[in-house]
Computed example of a mutant assay.
Amino acid sequence: MTERIELKSEDDTIALGYTLAHHCLNYLNQHDDTIIIYLEGELGAGKTTFSRGFLRALGHLGNVKSPTYTLVEPYEFETFSVYHFDLYRLADSEELEFMGIRDYLAKRCICLVEWPQKAGDVLPQPDIKIELLYKQLEREAIIHPLSEKGITIQRG
Rank of each mutant, 00 (worst) to 15 (best):
L20E: 11
D86G: 09
N26M: 08
W115P: 04
I130K: 01
E95L: 09
L71N: 00
F80S: 06
L90G: 13
T70M: 12
G41I: 06
E97N: 12
I128W: 00
K149V: 07
L7N: 00
T19A: 11
A45T: 08
G59Y: 02
A45C: 15
P145S: 11
E95D: 14
V82T: 07
N63M: 09
W115T: 04
E78G: 07
Y38M: 03
S147H: 13
G46H: 07
Y88C: 11
P124L: 00
N63W: 02
E94F: 14
H84G: 13
R89I: 06
L96C: 05
P116Y: 12
K118T: 02
G53R: 01
Q136I: 03
E138H: 13
E148D: 13
K118R: 12
D11K: 05
G41N: 10
E148I: 00
G17W: 00
L28Q: 06
H144R: 08
S93M: 07
E6Q: 03
S81Y: 07
T19L: 11
N26C: 10
K65T: 04
N29H: 12
I101C: 13
G62M: 05
E148Y: 01
N29S: 12
A119Y: 04
P116T: 08
G59F: 02
G59A: 09
T70H: 08
R52Q: 13
V72Q: 11
Y27G: 08
Y27H: 04
D121Q: 10
L123H: 00
W115E: 13
L133N: 01
P126I: 04
G120T: 03
N26A: 10
R4T: 07
L28I: 04
Y134D: 05
D127T: 08
A106P: 14
K149F: 06
T13C: 15
R155Y: 12
T68D: 15
I143R: 14
E76C: 11
G156Y: 08
Q136F: 10
E76I: 05
S147K: 07
I101R: 01
F98T: 10
K118W: 05
E73R: 09
G150V: 01
E40Q: 10
Y104F: 14
R52G: 14
Q136M: 07
I151G: 15
L20K: 01
W115G: 10
D11E: 10
I36H: 04
H22L: 14
V72R: 00
S9M: 09
E6T: 04
L132W: 00
A21P: 12
T68G: 14
K8H: 15
H60M: 11
S81M: 05
I14R: 03
K118E: 14
Y69L: 06
L133E: 15
G59R: 05
P74N: 10
E73A: 11
H144A: 08
G100F: 07
E10Y: 02
E94S: 15
H60T: 08
V122D: 09
P124N: 00
I153Q: 01
K65Y: 03
S81Q: 04
G44Y: 09
P74R: 06
S81T: 02
E138Y: 08
L112P: 04
T34V: 09
D121A: 12
M99E: 08
G17H: 00
P126L: 05
E97M: 13
R52D: 15
T68P: 02
H31W: 04
H144S: 10
M99T: 01
I35W: 14
